[in-house]
Simulated scan of single mutants.
Amino acid sequence: MSSVLSVTNLTYQMKERSILSNISFQVMAKSSVGIIGESGSGKTTLGRLILGLLEPSHGAIFLHGKAFPSGQQNERRAIQAVFQHPLASFNPEWSVRDSILEPFRCHRPILRHFPATSEEDLITTLADAVGLEARLFDRFPHQLSGGQIQRAAIARAISIEPDMIVMDEPTTGLDVVSRARIIELLEHLQQTLGVSFVLISHDIDFIRRLCAETLVLRDGHAVDVIDRLESGGSYTQRFVEAGTW
């Protein structure tokens, strides 16, 4: 199985303060890696570095074996994001439909999995893929529930069929039913689209169910890179037993 993402000795400093130190891991094709740790451990910063939103102080990120970001026109199509507060990531003056279609309009990709010949076809296909009624996309972001706007954010991320999606706390603030549906949706998308995920979360059960490997951060350092949470060291086990970070 080939590597989609490779992170090598990634370090990030801000005003001479070390936020992340020598982080290394890989994400294989059609797999998920979890990133967990206490608040302030560097999880979200790592996600932003992976997305190219921050520039590392040292180290490197490779996407399909090539340095990322490199500035090439279409490279950002390969990696998309679902942010921690999905409502805030939508333009409040646009319909949800227009926000979802924005990446497609920018990149105009040739789609492999979504046989859409028009934007209307694509909206219908995406709505079906994330389990929402297409009519909901005509609403404004604030008119959708937490679970609905989370699904709409996922629809936007998959609209250009990326190879990887970075998701920051995708189950935070969701009720039990919505959380279960999001987990089932991500499992389904991985099977049907072959997308890889980097999943940043405090939710241990969520990580355990979806991730083939988990990176455990503490104060900006990787204390464990493990295939089973139960195989981690004492720091990891303390939180596994508690059921949360």
Rank of each mutant, 00 (worst) to 15 (best):
M1K: 10
L5R: 01
V7C: 11
V7K: 02
N9W: 01
Y12H: 15
M14K: 13
E16L: 03
R17K: 15
I19L: 14
L20C: 04
L20T: 04
K30E: 12
K30D: 13
G34A: 07
G34C: 13
I35A: 10
E38T: 10
E38Y: 02
S39G: 13
G40Y: 07
G42F: 04
K43Y: 01
G47N: 03
G47A: 09
R48I: 02
L49I: 11
L49R: 06
F68D: 11
S70R: 04
Q73H: 07
E75T: 01
E75W: 07
A81Y: 12
F83P: 08
F83W: 05
H85D: 14
H85K: 07
L87I: 14
S89C: 08
S89D: 12
S89V: 04
F90P: 11
V96I: 13
D98S: 15
I100G: 11
L101S: 02
E102N: 06
F104Q: 12
C106S: 08
H107K: 05
R108D: 09
I110L: 13
I110Y: 04
R112V: 05
F114C: 08
P115D: 11
A116T: 02
E120S: 15
L122I: 09
L122S: 01
T124D: 12
D128Q: 15
A129E: 10
G131F: 06
L132R: 14
E133N: 15
A134E: 09
F137E: 06
R139L: 13
H142D: 10
G146V: 05
G147A: 11
I149L: 09
R151V: 05
A152M: 13
A152R: 14
A153Q: 09
A157C: 07
I158C: 14
S159F: 04
S159T: 11
E161V: 12
D163I: 01
M164K: 03
M164N: 03
I165W: 00
M167R: 08
G173M: 08
L174N: 09
D175H: 10
D175W: 10
V176S: 10
A180S: 15
E184L: 12
E184I: 07
Q191M: 08
T192M: 00
L193P: 03
L193D: 09
S196D: 10
F197D: 02
L199Y: 00
I200P: 00
S201D: 05
D203C: 00
D203Y: 00
D205W: 02
I207G: 00
I207N: 00
I207L: 07
L210N: 08
C211I: 04
E213I: 04
E213R: 12
E213T: 13
T214F: 05
L215D: 09
R218V: 05
D219Y: 06
D219P: 00
H221G: 00
V223D: 01
D224G: 06
V225R: 14
V225T: 05
I226M: 03
E230T: 14
G233R: 07
T236W: 01
T236M: 03
Q237G: 05
R238E: 13
R238A: 12
F239M: 12
F239D: 03
F239Y: 14
A242S: 06
W245S: 09
